[in-house]
Amino acid sequence: MLVRSSSRLTLVAACAVLAACGARESADPLPLPAPTVLVQPDAQAVAWSAPGVIAAPESTPLSFRQAGLVLLRHVGLGDVVRAGQVLAELDPEPWRQNLASAQAGQLAAREALDVAERQWQRDRFQGREGLIAQAQMEQTRGQLAQARAQHEQATQALARARDQMAYTRLMADHDGVIVAEQAATGQNVAAGQPVYTLAWGDGLDVIVDLPAHRVTDIRPGQAAGIELVARPGLRLSARVREIARAADPATLGFRTKLRLDEPAPALRLGMTATVRFQDVAAPGARYVLPATALFHQGDQPAVWVVGADGVLALRTVEVTAYGADTVTVSKGLEPGLRVLAQGVHTVSAGQRVEAVPYRPRATVPGRGGQ
């Protein structure tokens, strides 16, 4: 009986040990593998680029001051012109006739004024001698005043006619280059209708149209790097000199002009370039993470940080840029941390995971990256 009772006690103790082990195993499950990335500063994350074009500092549309038929054009696209050079001419015949009429009218008014002045001199002398009535003198004085007014009107009309004749020639206001042609020989143009566009000014600019989320990242005087599309090996430097206060209605971009520090001889107006900016809005280190690492804690973006013991902790971050498959974080992380790269919606705070390297899925041709 004593032996049998001892066997029972041994069996009960063994079952108790097994039950305790099972309880511990269910309470402490093995950590699940979790793809992670190591947080490291990315020097390229602070740089961004925009397409630009080489341009002159100033650009002026040139037009005739009056309507007419374009009879001659003396320059074309790309021509270098000098201030005062005649660029195009209107048919002058209608204005030549107007000038001849104005000259005849002014000559007639001059003759009438001379007659009125001589008559006034005679009547004034005779009036002092008492040979004519006072009313006659007043009438002569009025005729003289009228002749003077008519002569003045005729003189002004002649000046306008001469100006109109001169306006049949379109001249350059500055030394520069013709960068656009808007009218052809034989075309009737209205007053003020552009015929050419003249680019002028000292030095060269680079013009870019920046989107709204980028225009706040730059400041006047900020440096930028310039790379020509036509000359990939050529590197130039420039500085921001002007930022538009309003967006262009057509492109919705903010026109920004940069002045090249030292224009190269190879540069030509209209060349395309890539402008590389350094973001001065938030100068510290930046960290580029997979887009799948981003989580949200309420309205705040966040990521799961894997501790040294494998325990997950949620940390809010500040995102400065969203790419096609990446996000750029500027605040909330430090170099050396490990961040969960996938499965952010399947874990919870305090959960223990086993960190494994993150390997992005390769894009399968014809599958659109699925």
Rank of each mutant, 00 (worst) to 15 (best):
A104C: 04
A104Q: 10
Q106F: 02
A109C: 05
A109R: 03
A112I: 01
L113R: 13
L113F: 09
V115G: 01
A116E: 02
E117T: 12
R118F: 05
Q119W: 00
R122S: 13
R122N: 10
D123T: 13
Q126K: 03
R128V: 12
G130A: 07
G130N: 04
G130P: 04
A133W: 02
Q134L: 11
Q136G: 11
Q136W: 01
Q136A: 15
M137C: 08
M137H: 02
E138M: 06
Q139L: 14
R141A: 14
Q143G: 10
R148I: 07
R148C: 03
R148A: 14
Q150C: 01
H151V: 00
Q153H: 06
A154H: 05
A154T: 09
A154F: 06
T155V: 05
T155C: 00
T155I: 00
T155K: 09
Q156N: 11
Q156R: 11
A157H: 02
A159D: 14
R160D: 14
R160T: 13
R160F: 09
A161P: 10
A161C: 08
D163R: 12
Q164T: 04
M165A: 11
Y167G: 03
Y167A: 14
Y167T: 01
T168A: 09
T168H: 04
R169P: 11
H174C: 08
D175T: 12
V177C: 01
I178F: 03
A180H: 05
E181L: 10
Q182Y: 11
A183F: 08
A184P: 00
T185M: 12
G186C: 12
N188Y: 07
P194V: 11
V195K: 01
T197H: 10
T197D: 06
T197V: 15
T197C: 03
L198S: 08
L198P: 02
A199D: 07
W200Q: 08
G201I: 06
G201P: 06
G201F: 03
I207Q: 12
I207G: 00
